[in-house]
Design a protein around this nucleic acid. Structure first.
Ligand code: MN
Ligand code: MN
Ligand code: ZN
Ligand code: ZN
Lengths: 140, 140
DNA sequence: GACAAAATGAGAGCCGTTCTCATTAAGAGC
DNA sequence: GCTCTTAATGAGAACGGCTCTCATTTTGTC
């Protein structure tokens, strides 16, 4: 028989390094295709499927976090200490907010429910999308 | 020339009634396909595209609200006053919380960003899933 | 009832994501 | 360094939720 499983299989490929570097370099969460495009531009041509697989791996590891904004794209970013997010309804930008805005809810409200965490997205419009005089079409 | 536009065009079809009745009858938010299935089972065969179009119309009207849970499906439910949600990491239950827990964020934190709304999910475990001794697998 | 156009049905098309499988190459062991 | 096992990759097909197209039906108005 062959060798028994020892540790979680994980190989250090340049593709994984490229994906991680791309995510680190970005100031906000990126879609898979955007990560693909940037990683590709910054180095060797990597396959889109590899990007997806790598992101999946990083999610399992806890290295990155993912989020659905509502436009059909999943965004990926470095997982760090807890923080809430600002989401621009104009351009879809997904950016971290400094710290946490949510107070511990009074247990009277959560009857029987033990709260272990939360996820908050603040919706609105960034400076560019609000524009000079403040245009901004609402997206429900 | 023809008559000028007077009011927002909206016709009262049995399909729209069926979709609304289905959503009202459900105690929770449903996916478009689930609404399609139920409406269909409860009456005449309605087209999936019609369900989507009707939901879009209801969203514009403000009759229904939509939400992404994170599994790639959009869920639709009756729009009511704003409320946050409790999500059980054990059973996936998604239930409304009385009122809103989120304070207006200090503008110092949101530099240049105009906040128009938010979405908050409190994660944790419901009474059943906490159980007698408190089992409960985490969902990232 | 006649009419204009909103709304529908059926299915093709779109697009982000996942899967398949032949090929490559990372890491363990020598 | 070389060999070997198999994790990982690349290329493209497949998948699935959603949207679009267009001929046809139906609504609301006159
Ligand atoms: Mn984040
Ligand atoms: Mn709700
Ligand atoms: Zn913006
Ligand atoms: Zn539960």
């Amino acid at each position: 028989m062959t060798r028994a499983a020892t540790r979680p299989p994980s190989r250090n490929t340049w593709q994984r390094q490229a994906v991680l570097r791309t995510i680190e370099a970005a100031g906000c969460h990126l879609s898979a295709e955007e990560i693909h495009r940037r990683a590709r531009r910054a180095g060797r041509p990597i396959a889109l499927a590899t990007v997806y697989r790598t992101l999946e791996t990083f999610l399992r590891t806890g290295l990155v976090e993912s989020a659905h904004i509502g436009d059909g794209l999943v965004r990926y970013g470095l997982a760090s200490d807890h923080h809430d997010h600002l989401v621009c309804l104009g351009c879809g930008q997904w950016r971290p907010l400094e710290g946490c805005v949510v107070p511990r809810p009074r247990s009277a409200l959560t009857r029987g429910f033990v709260v272990t965490g939360h996820r908050l997205e603040l919706y609105g419009y960034c400076a560019q999308c609000r524009g000079p005089q403040g245009r901004g079409e609402a997206r429900p």
